[in-house]
Amino acid sequence: MTTKIDLDRDLSLRLRIDALLANYIHCIDEDRLEEWPDYFTNDGRYKVVTRENYDLGLPVALIYCDGTGMFKDRISALRTANIFEPHVYCHMVSALKILDSSGPNIKTQSNFTVTRTMSEGQMMTFLCGKTIDTVTEIDGELKFKERTVILDSRRIDTLLVIPV
């Protein structure tokens, strides 16, 4: 039985997580990627995996960051070293589900699509799938302690350089 107190708590938590997800995707879509590592705890882990590997229990990720340094390296490589045709993302996130909010680490899941637009205008549904996140509160702010992006398709069109 869900009481009104449970529901109020749940609603407030959902709003806070929803705000985190909104800030996160706008940060990426607006190319403020230098802020991207700040959405994670210092020991945060981030993985982009395919549904195929996830379902088969295979560990290798397309992108794997473990700790702030690796997040920063992804962005500095994107800015200074890697070569690719300029493009932008538009994220759509929906169906936030709270899997576990009993402890300090809140486990959630949501769906996403990423539309990619190239500099000459070609546009495609680049990625879709779900994320499984572990969110925690640090100094009054919610951050990702773990974020696993599970891509429905194993096929990456051309390359993947901007995080999801």
Partner: peptide
């Protein structure tokens, strides 16, 4: 060793630091 291979695989594949360009240059 599993963990080390996870780490070094950041270099290669479709999002690899030293291989992603191979995806676009052919195009």
């Amino acid at each position: 060793m599993d963990e080390l291979r996870m780490q070094v695989n950041n270099l290669v594949g479709p999002a690899g630091f030293i291989s992603m360009e191979d995806g676009c240059v052919g195009g």
